[in-house]
Amino acid sequence: MSEATTPEPEEDRLRELATAVLEGEARAVAALSEHLDAGFLHACRLLLGCRGRVVVTGMGKSGHIGGKIAATLASTGTPAFFVHPGEASHGDLGMITGDDVVVALSNSGETDELLTILPVLKRLGVPMVALTGRPSSTLAREADAHVDVSVAEEVCPLGLAPTTSTTAALAMGDALAVALLEARGFRREDFARTHPSGRLGKRLLVHVRDIMHQGEGVPRVAPQASLADALVEMSRKGLGFTLVVEADDRLAGIFTDGDLRRVLDHGPVDVHATAIGEVMTRNGRTLDADQLAAEALEIMERHRINGAPVVDGDQRVVGACNMHNLLRSGVA
């Protein structure tokens, strides 16, 4: 006799279940705005006044949410880390000082591991912010500030698996982090400094001077140089263009691969007799060494150019940059 198999649900039913979950959790998160009361504001004040670090703790699924909240706080200007409450009772409480603030997550507000360390935190004089789903719970009553993250029900059909409650706690953690971010005057540049390897970090930290060619790496010829000399310089430096520079280093113009095609389109040309100053492009786009590389990339894309000179305030050449430099820098 073959084993009985569970019939696979219909696709429409799967979609229906998923839709119910998303809509249920969305309603629960929207309802949290009603919980932004005096407790939430007091929590913000405690966190803003923290002289040490914010220590986030929680068990089980609340612990996973707490880890994410700690990471969000740390990356938005509030130094924070996560401590497992079970490990805290076995030595990790030594990581917490009197200058810190503890943020404890527990939907029930009665998690044994949190209640065990509560008296020690009290003796240390460490302020506690509790995020619970039960304002009457022990943790909520003992905390210095309680943030209500209660939900009407879990979207789990059994009403058992933490689903809506963990989503609510995560959303409230984001609300705290963003409120603190704004209050601290945290800027995009500050965020970039904590994310130097990410795309945003590169877009906000990398400047033209960091990636441009300088010194002997800059292709340049004098206006009276022949077109042939300019082509040799372009080939040797490999940027797809050469700058045309006066004796005092002031930019006179630029000659690119595109300019060469346009010259040739007009018919035969004597590359040895033609001065580059006669065929160069004048008044082309230039870059500033202090510009963000991302801004330089946007300029090049908008004007459909593959390279540009970098000049100072007196139009003296200090470098050269092409599209390859910008793409390799990771700002795209």
Rank of each mutant, 00 (worst) to 15 (best):
S75M: 05
L46S: 02
T163G: 02
A332S: 08
L181W: 07
T132G: 01
R209E: 15
I117R: 07
A225Q: 09
L47S: 04
H213N: 15
L118V: 13
S33W: 10
I69V: 14
P119S: 03
A28C: 09
A145Y: 03
G24Q: 12
G307S: 08
Q214H: 15
S62P: 10
L124T: 04
L205F: 13
E153S: 09
D112A: 14
A332W: 04
H42T: 07
M300A: 02
A43T: 10
I254H: 09
A273S: 13
P162K: 01
P7V: 12
A225D: 12
H84Q: 00
R134L: 01
A230N: 04
A332T: 07
C156L: 02
N306S: 14
T116M: 14
G307R: 03
R316F: 11
R250N: 10
E182Y: 12
Q315H: 05
D314T: 08
G109F: 05
L160C: 06
G253W: 05
L41V: 13
T6P: 01
A104V: 03
S89I: 14
S106Q: 00
T116F: 14
D174C: 11
V206G: 11
G125T: 10
P157F: 03
D265Y: 14
L170K: 07
A140V: 02
E3M: 12
T166H: 02
E216G: 08
G24T: 12
S137I: 07
E11M: 10
E87D: 14
T132H: 01
R141K: 08
A4M: 13
E182I: 13
A183S: 15
E113Y: 01
P196Y: 04
G67Q: 14
V102N: 06
M1I: 12
S89H: 12
T242K: 00
V178C: 08
A228R: 15
R250W: 11
M59Q: 05
K237H: 06
L292Y: 02
V21E: 06
D12G: 01
E182V: 15
R261C: 10
Q214W: 15
G253T: 04
P119K: 02
E301V: 10
T116A: 15
I211R: 11
I69Q: 06
V311H: 02
E10N: 13
T97C: 09
V21H: 01
E154N: 06
F82P: 11
H90Q: 13
A179V: 11
M300S: 09
E216Q: 02
A247N: 03
V56W: 11
T72P: 00
G258E: 00
L260Q: 10
S75F: 11
M212S: 07
A28T: 00
I96D: 07
F255I: 07
A140W: 04
R203N: 15
E16G: 13
H207M: 14
A152E: 08
V29A: 08
V56Q: 08
I96M: 12
E295I: 06
E25V: 00
L48C: 09
E142Q: 14
D249C: 11
I276Y: 03
L292S: 03
V103S: 05
G284A: 13
M300G: 10
V102A: 04
L251K: 12
H195M: 08
E10S: 14
A38C: 06
P196C: 06
R141Y: 09
L14C: 10
A168M: 00
A320P: 07
R302I: 04
V331S: 08
F241A: 13
R262Q: 09
E25H: 05
A161G: 04
G217E: 15
